[in-house]
């Protein structure tokens, strides 16, 4: 296991604390003093204990540029999700069941585990694709309507629009 510098640990701790506190306030939906104080104490202990587990990112994640790209990613993702559902609806409702399933693979340029996880999840929720496995930088995708088995072309069609944005976030 790699050693982590103290400032990294501190940044992770603050980041975890921030997100846990955000979730707590959204769940209680109140700013009453006793709720907030109890939430701060509990989330502080949890984030102290989980420093070595949630090793996603440092405080750079909260810079305005990255937050802008996250919101942009969210919009891209929502559009893809709605398209995916209309696609499923079209395939399921048409009497001839127009599918041509197969498994394709492609390589990604992403390096960190968290960004690969986000990409894999997004691919699963976009039209006609389902992530079967991720081994190092190779993605294995079940595709409901295969148009190409060439890894490069498959990458352009499935993942390029997401990866561009993810490279800017992580």
């Amino acid at each position: 296991m790699q050693t982590i510098s103290f400032s990294d640990k501190l940044q992770r701790f603050i980041l975890n604390w921030f997100f846990l506190m955000l979730v707590w306030i959204m769940f209680t939906s109140t700013f009453a003093v006793q709720e907030v104080v109890i939430g701060a104490i509990v989330t502080m202990f949890i984030s102290l204990m989980s420093i070595s587990m949630f090793t996603c990112c440092t405080l750079k994640l909260l810079s305005p540029v990255r937050i802008f790209w996250m919101l942009y990613y969210f919009v891209v993702f929502l559009i893809a999700l709605v398209k995916a559902n209309l696609d499923v609806a079209r395939r399921v409702l048409s009497p001839s069941l127009p599918i041509n399933p197969g498994v394709v693979k492609f390589k990604t340029k992403l390096t960190t585990n968290y960004s690969k996880m986000v990409l894999a999840n997004s691919i699963t929720l976009t039209p006609g694709t389902l992530t079967i496995d991720v081994i190092d930088d190779t993605f294995y995708i079940h595709w409901i309507d295969v148009t190409t088995t060439d890894p490069e072309k498959a990458f352009t069609e499935i993942a390029e629009s997401f990866e561009k944005v993810l490279l800017k976030i992580f």
């Binding site: 999700l81 709605v82 995916a84 559902n85 696609d87 499923v88 609806a89 395939r91 399921v92 409702l93 069941l97 599918i99 399933p101 699963t124 929720l125 006609g128 694709t129 389902l130 079967i132 079940h142 409901i144």
Partner: peptide, 29 residues
């Protein structure tokens, strides 16, 4: 409506991967 379509997809698709495709997307949205 989308949940219903997801159920219909699970009924109509030929194998588990296609069923998962229909099931995941439709149930998520």
């Amino acid at each position: 409506i989308f949940l219903f379509l997801g159920g219909l997809g699970i009924y109509r698709m030929p194998d588990i991967y296609n069923r998962l495709q229909a099931g995941t997307k439709a149930t998520t949205l």
